[in-house]
């Protein structure tokens, strides 16, 4: 339910934020990320899973390794929120236009 809060909370962790920033520069496999960070490779994998679960990053197989990148739908939860917001707002707008269409002012 609180997708946006969850996604932004995920970025509140400094290591996860650093991983997200590194991925913003371009796709990287887990090993390359671990080499740039003061944490173990399994720890990096765990952080990536969190980022993936909230829609901020996604991964794909490249041979035997997995390559991570920023989700191109981007900041997924924020988009999801605005997506719902504008769906509802435009539906309300449509209802207003069509209910008042007969009596022009």
């Amino acid at each position: 339910m609180t997708n946006v809060a969850t996604a932004l909370s995920a970025l509140g962790d400094p290591t996860r934020r650093r991983i997200f920033e590194l991925l913003a520069e371009g796709p990287r496999p887990v090993g390359a990320l671990a080499a740039l960070l003061p944490v173990s490779r399994p720890a990096v994998s765990q952080h990536l899973q969190v980022l993936k679960s909230v829609g901020l990053v996604r991964d794909h197989a490249d041979g035997a390794r997995r390559v991570y990148q920023i989700d191109p739908a981007g900041l997924g939860a924020i988009r999801a929120w605005l997506d719902q917001f504008w769906d509802r707002a435009l539906a309300d707008f449509k209802a207003e236009v069509e209910s008042t269409g007969e009596h022009q002012e």
Binding site: P72, A73, G74, L75, I78, R79, L82, D83, W86, D87, L90, A91, F93, K94, V97, E98, G101
Partner: peptide, 11 residues
Amino acid sequence: PAPVRKSVQVK
């Protein structure tokens, strides 16, 4: 991120 795009047809 990609923009949010919406479209609606009104009478």
